[in-house]
């Protein structure tokens, strides 16, 4: 069988290669989080016609490091009436769930930390840990704002899992697999072979392109809701709930919630990349494709989606709870169902 992990090839399948396979995404995650924090600070500043951080390093590019150092040396406060055990456990559960998703992401044709057949399903399932972590933290804080935020977050994430699941199901129908590497392989070739444009096939596939475009839009919206990002950040709406489920958290534990949110952003961005944007495939077919170009294309596509998420956060206002539920159940779900049926029909016909 062809191996999908270059570490297994170099040092053989051993404990060492397993540990290294787990460490590489962690290192990537730390670097990515620093870049994303800087991106958030700078992009928000540019959108609001400010300069953003300018003092730490040239153009303030060292600002995220300063932020991390600041968070590390802050006092760790546990509220007196909080449930100490669950309060301390919640950030770890949250981060475990976020990091577990990285286990199956194919960064390149030669590297996915764990190659399992059900990668897409797996990523979807471990998202459940985020709900548990949020609810655990919100309940243990013993604060009504935290509890309200946690309840909102749980109901929102569960509601938006359903249209998200339909999109994932459609992707599985199109690629005939749940394996993230095989989904990427199915879209090899130039960019019009991506599932965003209906997948590989003769030019007669044109009539499904509106449906796949709509489907990717639906997934983008549900992914924003599942990561609690604006315009769906009502679980932590500052103006009404102070900070939602992480109101009472400070220092490193707050940083872990924050870190987990950024990790989740990257995971949904990479799922969107793999399912609709061809994963590690080069947009020009054979040109600029290979193992290292794969890493380049994958990260740049995923980072572009992260950029879109940040862009939307600073341009759109927050939706109300009823609008959120309306959008999830009465708009996204029927449209996703229609797309699912049409694309299944297309798969049967061609």
């Amino acid at each position: 069988m062809e191996t999908f992990n270059f570490l297994d090839k170099i040092i053989g399948e051993s404990i060492l290669s397993a540990v290294l396979s787990a460490l590489l995404p962690l290192i990537f995650l730390i670097v990515y989080a620093l870049i994303a924090i800087l991106g958030e600070l700078k992009i928000s500043a540019w959108i609001q016609e400010r300069l953003g951080p300018m003092r730490t390093g040239p153009y303030g590019i060292l600002q995220p490091i300063a932020e991390v150092v600041k968070l590390l040396q802050k006092e760790d406060i546990v509220p007196t009436n909080a449930n100490r055990l669950l309060f301390n456990l919640a950030p770890f559960v949250m981060f475990t769930g976020a990091f577990a998703g990285f286990a199956v992401i194919p960064f390149s044709p030669a590297f996915a930390p764990a190659h399992i057949n059900l990668g897409l399903y797996y990523i979807f399932a471990v998202g459940a840990f985020a709900v548990i972590g949020i609810v655990m933290g919100g309940w243990a804080s013993n604060n009504k704002y935290s509890l309200l935020g946690a309840m909102r977050s749980a109901s929102q994430m569960i509601s938006y899992e359903i249209p998200g699941a339909l999109v994932v199901l459609t992707a599985a129908v199109l690629a005939n697999s749940l394996d993230l590497q095989e989904i990427s392989l199915a879209q090899s070739g130039p960019f019009w072979n991506w599932f965003l444009f209906g997948g590989p096939g003769p030019w007669t596939k044109i009539w499904v392109i509106p449906f796949t475009l709509l489907l990717s839009l639906i997934f983008m919206i549900t992914s924003l809701a599942e990561t609690n990002r604006t315009p769906f950040d009502i679980p932590e709406g500052e103006s009404e709930l102070v900070g939602g489920y992480h109101t009472e958290y400070s220092g490193m534990k707050f940083a872990m919630f924050f870190f987990a949110e950024y990790a989740n952003m990257f995971i949904v961005a990479s799922v969107l990349t793999i399912v609709f944007l061809g994963g590690w495939n080069s947009p020009f077919g054979e040109f600029m494709s290979g193992y290292f170009w794969g890493v380049f294309w994958f990260t740049s596509k995923a980072m572009f989606i992260v950029f879109l998420q940040i862009w939307l956060r600073w341009t759109l206002p927050r939706v109300r709870v009823d609008q959120l539920m309306f959008l999830g159940w009465k708009v996204l779900l029927p449209f996703a169902l229609v797309c699912f049926i049409v694309l299944s029909l297309y798969r049967i016909l061609y």
Partner: peptide, 25 residues
């Protein structure tokens, strides 16, 4: 049994446990 393992996480942790927590909370 990878399919059952993932289903276990999705159904029991993502569904039933969240429901239980809601009830208790």
């Amino acid at each position: 049994a990878d399919f059952i393992a993932i289903t276990q996480i999705l159904i029991y942790i993502g569904g039933i446990l969240v429901l239980l927590i809601f009830g208790v909370m």
